[in-house]
């Protein structure tokens, strides 16, 4: 028994036109293995076959050639779907259901008791920041709000394996941050996650391994640390120095190391952090919003509902850290 949760072998998908002629080779001989407890990132430019890979893994598309197995079973096995969560590229939800009804509907399709679903629904809504709009119909939601609900829907069964197709698209920076934290938390709880994203910075933070697709083929695959570490330059962080001191240091390095390309810059406050600060202020001021309540005050920080006993404090801690760092 191998440790691989998802396994593909020479997976190929060719889209045909109405007359059966080959048109698009969306995926070409893809062979990957995703291990239990791993966060795997699937990167690539638009149309490189990321979503197609996910759909093949979920049985929404049938492979032209090759094989996929999930938990060691073929994808058309219904039983394995009990342990899977899926957030598609867009949240294809029912406009006429309310957020609560949506979670209820999907929850009841699983082999979970009604009580469990009743308990999890408000927790999940709270977690994705939709606690206050639970009884509004989904058709009134903004894109980001639908996205958040889509995410809650993917987690209703406390899945072992989660497919996230661009989970941060349409989300505000705080939502993005929350999702990042969420993924980390999931990982800590031993879940396996397959993530497609364009936000490289986020992928860099959360993924253990990544694969970069181009034209349906894997260009690079490997551990993030190994792929990203550069061995030919260094970064020094120092307090503000007097110009003379700086000059001396520069001379010293030039003399002893014989290096020429030395640049000196101030570290920039990233826009993301600035935005965070502004919103944090708004939350502290108790401003109302009809949209997603992005971040609660310290007391109301949501927790991830779990079926098993686990430390759900992680998420809270990360958000707190994030907020307190600047002060």
């Amino acid at each position: 028994m191998s440790n691989a949760v998802v396994k593909t072998h020479n997976l190929t998908k060719i889209f045909k036109d109405f007359w059966g002629r080959n048109k698009v080779k969306a995926l070409d001989k893809l062979s990957i293995e995703i291990n239990r407890g791993e966060v795997f990132g699937l990167l690539g430019p638009n149309g490189s076959g990321k979503s197609t890979t996910l759909k093949l893994m979920l049985g929404l598309l049938f492979p032209t050639k090759g094989k996929v197995s999930i938990f060691g079973k073929p994808v058309n096995n219904t039983a394995i779907k009990e342990k899977i969560g899926f957030l598609p590229e867009e949240s294809y939800l029912y406009g006429y259901l309310t957020a609560k009804e949506t979670l209820f509907f999907y929850g009841n399709l699983f082999d979970i008791s009604r009580n469990q679903i009743k308990k999890r629904t408000p927790q999940l809504l709270e977690m994705v920041g939709l606690g206050k709009v639970g009884s509004r119909p989904v058709r009134e939601f903004s894109k980001g709000m639908t996205r958040r609900l889509g995410l809650a829907q993917a987690l209703i069964n406390d899945p072992e394996l989660i497919f996230l197709d661009e989970p941060t698209s349409g989300l505000d920076p705080i939502g993005t941050k929350q999702i990042k934290n969420l993924i980390t938390e999931m990982k800590n709880r031993g879940k396996t996650i397959l993530l497609c994203s364009h936000l490289l910075a986020d992928v860099e933070d959360v993924c253990d391994r990544i694969a970069i697709l181009y034209g349906g083929k894997i260009r690079v695959m490997g551990k993030v640390d190994e792929l990203l570490s550069k061995h030919d330059s260094l970064q020094l962080n120092l307090p503000e120095l007097k110009p003379e001191t700086l000059k001396q240091i520069k001379c010293l390095i030039e003399k002893t190391e014989n290096a020429s390309n030395i640049t000196v810059e101030h570290p920039k406050d990233r826009l993301e952090k600035f935005f965070l600060k502004v919103i944090e202020q708004a939350v502290v001021d108790k401003s109302e919003t009809a949209g997603a309540n992005v971040l609660a005050t310290e007391k109301e920080i949501p927790e991830i509902p779990e079926t098993t006993e686990h430390n759900s404090k992680t998420n809270k801690k990360i958000i707190n850290d994030l907020l307190n760092k600047e002060n």
Binding site: G59, F86, Y92, L93, Y106, D111, Q153
Partner: peptide
């Protein structure tokens, strides 16, 4: 057509 089936078909329902 509305692709809502994507979600329904990835749930454990025959």
């Amino acid at each position: 057509e509305k692709k809502q089936m994507f979600l329904l078909c990835t749930k454990p329902v025959e």
